[in-house]
Design a binder for these strands. Structure first.
Lengths: 411, 411
DNA sequence: TCCAGAGATGAATCCACCC
DNA sequence: GGGGTGGATTCATCTCTGG
């Protein structure tokens, strides 16, 4: 039984600063999500082939002041619409986050600051003379101290001590925490724990350029991120206001989470896109996050260590290839012989994997004795692993000693 | 040969704002790391059982203004000491990060902002009606555009397509990137690859209350974090200034990374602790070894891995001996040739170290070419390291090619 | 000094191909 | 045919060069 109602998701083409004061009821909004231009001082644009549309908006400003004043106006108008139980999320990045938060402090009060959420992601990149920017900031403020905040629990860290979860604890006379026991040294099972509270750093994949979820709108946010914000702040039926709705990701998330929603954007193309998406949306599954992708597990720890120790690049995605060594004169492929693999199998695997690859040579690292490969191809070089060689020294020494003692016996 | 010198690590008990203008030379500092009170409006304290000392400092302020003015004074004094190539790192948390960054903008200029580093960690805590705070912010500014920034490369994502790393690409007429091919559809091998630039979000474990590295000082920072900051901004011998040195973690990291260092703190107990930590070689050693800090001491780590991987016992405190293998019939010593060590030095070292030890054989692992040792003692076995052999594969290839072309010439 | 345009780059998704 | 494997692609960043 689908209780969702698409009619509670609305998109309006208007200026937020004009529309909100007139059309939204005071104190009626549970969640305000603001994703304004970030003060990048550039024109944001992207051509969408499917739609044959050039989506664009301007993020160029005369000055920081004019940008801040623009946001200030909207924030003040938003505040009066926010319910006393409601939360406001302002999404920005390092470009102007500090000025925006000073502004938020002045409008909502320092005491109503709740969190700085860090949306952290890994993304394609290029070398640069600074660190690769791979996070955005989301500030969370409430209007009053009576705000609603859904506690979301996450899984325990793998290093958590099991006893902590299973046994009740108590403070002894000296204030030291001990496991609680009765006079017969029986432990007390603890009340059911339900996990660790949600952190303020969120690792959520950035929308990949090839992701189906992509609409072609610049700065599109992942639905997974929007959904997390809703889960914290809203129950079913709550009203969400999104004054810079862009491609409408928050609207889709609102629909999924059974919330009412109003998205506003002054860009006609954006609103057209939102309406289209409302009827036909797609959420990409992150293959790497789900751990479904077997090919990523090719390298176990030992082999990866070995590859890294010789300054080669580990390759996790290809079956017959463990690493690439990048020398001044060309690229060399490496494969390490596996435990249950004969050397001829190893050679076959790397040969197959590198058939189409411009590798100058291929190195096979022999880790143990197995069969003898009579015809080793020209471009294959077999090298014995250090472990293999040292172990051989050890066993040879032992043989020597045995020989010696035999002689002694014989003498 | 140990080039580290503990005398270049200095701790001073003084007020930074008084000491710095008088005692530090203008434009002389490569890295200024500031870890001031965070404006928590509370007394920070922690009782250390071992030392029987209550470490504490006040983070209470009359007003935000008085806090900001205090920091402003220090920042201005620091700026004049910073070299034109230098970097300043200001460590803070959400309490006042925005006001601090506005201040930094005003002193260093918006254009000299480089990064906001997010130090992200998992931490135990009770549930609360907000998200669990689990990050701190570090702002990076330069004094001029001529700053020095060491590019640190990290591993490629496991999902990266190998072909991308192996083949050259080119933009076609429509600006679309394609693999480069000649008229015969032959691909072009790509240039040397060296990884992905370091991100601005750093996942580094928080010092848990039981960690050996813990000194008992509140707000103590992990050496791994300090070391990363140094690696970005400093070369060997560079000068680091730390006006709020606290427990002295940056000093230890400076020592590990061969940098000169001046730490200042007005708290007597803090400076006493720093001095103790500096002289207690064991503490700093354990800090390096116990925390999975592969990054500081790659060689040590690699060698230890190697020793363990062949089921030998690593020897930590002996100059000439890295490991001992215990065979049924006797003991075998192992030493790995160090970077600045000739093979004869390596052999001499292990010979000297094992003079009084009942070793059946000694294994020397050759990592690079140096001198040729004509008379190798009977009980020494020289084995080439994997990295050495892989490096040599290529020069052998080149020799082959040369031989072939010689033949061709001759023909 | 600043801007425009070209060149490089890699995460990870989609999808073609192969057994 | 279906599941696994890997090839090609997209595009937001950064660098560099020339006007």
């Amino acid at each position: 039984m689908n209780t969702k109602n698409i009619d509670t998701i609305k998109f309006i083409c208007e200026s937020a600063e004009n529309y909100i004061p007139l059309q939204v009821k005071d104190n009626s909004v549970q969640l305000i999500y603001l994703d304004p231009p970030f003060f990048k001082q550039t024109e944001m644009q992207m051509y969408c082939k499917n739609e044959k549309t050039l989506y664009s908006f301007s993020d160029k400003w005369d000055s920081l002041d004019s940008y801040i004043n623009f946001i200030k106006d909207i924030l003040i108008k938003c505040k009066s619409k926010l319910s006393n139980h409601g939360l406001l999320f302002l999404h920005c990045d390092t470009s102007a986050s500090h000025y925006l938060r000073v502004l938020l402090d002045s409008i909502f009060g320092q005491k109503n600051f709740l969190n700085e959420v860090i949306w952290s992601y890994r993304r394609w990149s290029n070398t640069s003379s600074r660190l690769l920017e791979s996070h955005q900031n989301i500030f969370v403020y409430s209007k009053t101290k009576k705000y609603k905040f859904n506690r979301i629990m996450t899984e325990y860290s793998p290093t958590t001590n099991v006893d902590q979860l299973l046994q009740d604890r108590i403070r002894d006379g000296n204030g030291v925490v001990k496991y609680k026991k009765d006079e017969n040294e029986n432990i007390f099972p603890s009340k059911l724990k339900n996990g660790v509270p949600l952190r303020d750093v969120w690792e959520i994949p950035f929308l990949n350029p090839k992701a189906k979820e992509r609409t072609g709108y610049p700065t599109q946010k992942p639905i997974e991120l929007m959904s997390k914000i809703i889960k914290i702040s809203c129950n079913k039926g709550d009203f969400i206001l999104d004054p810079f709705c862009g491609s409408g990701s928050m609207g889709i998330a609102a629909y999924i989470n059974n919330c009412k929603y109003l998205g506003i954007d002054k860009n006609v193309d954006a609103i057209k896109l939102c309406e289209k998406r409302k009827n036909d949306y797609y959420i990409s599954q992150s293959a790497i996050k789900d751990g479904n992708y077997q090919s990523f597990n090719n390298l176990d720890h030992e082999i990866k260590n070995l590859i890294v120790s010789v300054n080669a690049i580990p390759i996790e995605r290809n079956k017959g290839l463990d690493g690439i060594y990048s020398s001044a004169d060309g690229l060399i492929g490496i494969r390490v012989q596996r435990k249950n693999e004969s050397i001829s199998e190893t050679i076959n695997l790397i040969e197959r994997a590198s058939k189409t690859k411009p590798l100058l040579k291929k190195i096979v690292i022999k880790t143990h004795d197995s069969d003898f490969f009579e015809i080793v191809p020209d471009d294959i070089i077999i090298i014995e692993s250090l472990e293999y060689k040292i172990n051989n020294v050890f066993s040879n020494c032992e043989n020597d000693v045995k020989k010696t003692s035999k002689k002694r016996c014989g003498a």
